[in-house]
Simulated scan of single mutants.
Amino acid sequence: MPLPFLTADRALQADGRADPVPPSDLGPDHWRRPYRPGPWRVGTAAVFLLLASFVLLSALIIALAGAPVGAAVCAAVGLLVIALALRLVRVGIWVSAQGLRQVNLLRTTTLPWSAVAAVRTVQQPVRWLGLPRTVQGQALRVDRASGEPLRAVVTDHSGDFLGRAETFESAVDALEAWAAEYR
């Protein structure tokens, strides 16, 4: 079963250059992430799914014990944890011919390419694995044509790229190529 939110959709050509043009079998409004989710992000989502399985098993046991209200509450919590895990895997920058979409845990910001002023890499303090602790690192900065830049979710210390500097560089190159092609 293909999982399109996990694939990078062939973001790099064979020679390593970024390929901003979507494949011909996909429409121009097909959103894709030009990099794969990292092991920290996938591992955290897997832990949440494991937790959800225990909560749903608890809901089953509570339902068999004869407490339907408690079982419903447990089932709702389990489904909420599953939704959180799936959303966590989707966090990142997504692109299409229409624009750039930044997916955060609780909200999504979509900008058409005409509203994007620049996409570049900057040196700045970044959050380590999304935690409050900051370290000096690199971040992909998306400047809007009007207003504040988007909050950096693609950093070299995020759950996608921690310890994978080459992957961060190729992802940033692919995102910059998309911006250069369509902006």
Rank of each mutant, 00 (worst) to 15 (best):
M1D: 08
P4Y: 14
F5I: 15
L6G: 09
A8G: 12
D9T: 03
A11H: 08
Q13S: 14
G16I: 13
A18W: 01
A18E: 03
D19S: 14
D19W: 10
P20L: 09
P20K: 01
V21H: 13
V21D: 13
P22H: 01
P22V: 08
P22A: 10
P23S: 11
S24P: 12
L26H: 13
G27N: 12
P28F: 10
H30T: 07
P34N: 09
P37Q: 04
P37Y: 04
G38D: 03
P39L: 15
R41H: 00
G43W: 08
T44S: 10
T44G: 15
A46W: 05
V47Q: 08
F48Y: 14
L51F: 14
L51N: 11
S53R: 04
L57F: 06
S58Q: 05
S58L: 04
L60F: 01
I61H: 00
G66P: 00
P68R: 12
P68M: 11
V69I: 15
G70P: 08
A72R: 04
A72E: 10
C74P: 06
C74Q: 02
A75H: 02
V77E: 07
L79H: 02
L79K: 04
A83I: 04
L84Q: 13
L86T: 06
R87Y: 08
L88K: 09
R90A: 14
V91M: 09
W94M: 13
V95D: 01
S96T: 01
A97M: 01
G99S: 08
G99P: 06
L100V: 12
R101C: 13
Q102P: 04
L105C: 12
L106N: 14
R107I: 06
T109P: 00
T110H: 05
L111P: 08
P112K: 08
W113Q: 03
W113A: 01
W113T: 03
A115Q: 12
V116G: 00
A118I: 03
T121R: 13
Q124I: 09
V126C: 06
V126D: 10
V126S: 09
R127P: 05
W128Y: 15
P132E: 08
P132L: 05
V135C: 04
V135F: 00
Q138D: 07
A139T: 06
S146W: 04
E148F: 03
E148A: 15
R151V: 15
A152M: 11
V153S: 06
D156W: 06
D156N: 15
H157Y: 02
L162H: 02
G163H: 09
R164S: 05
A165I: 03
E166T: 12
F168A: 05
F168K: 07
A171F: 09
V172Q: 01
A174H: 07
L175Y: 09
E176T: 14
A179P: 00
A179E: 03
A179D: 00
Y182A: 02
Y182N: 04
R183K: 14
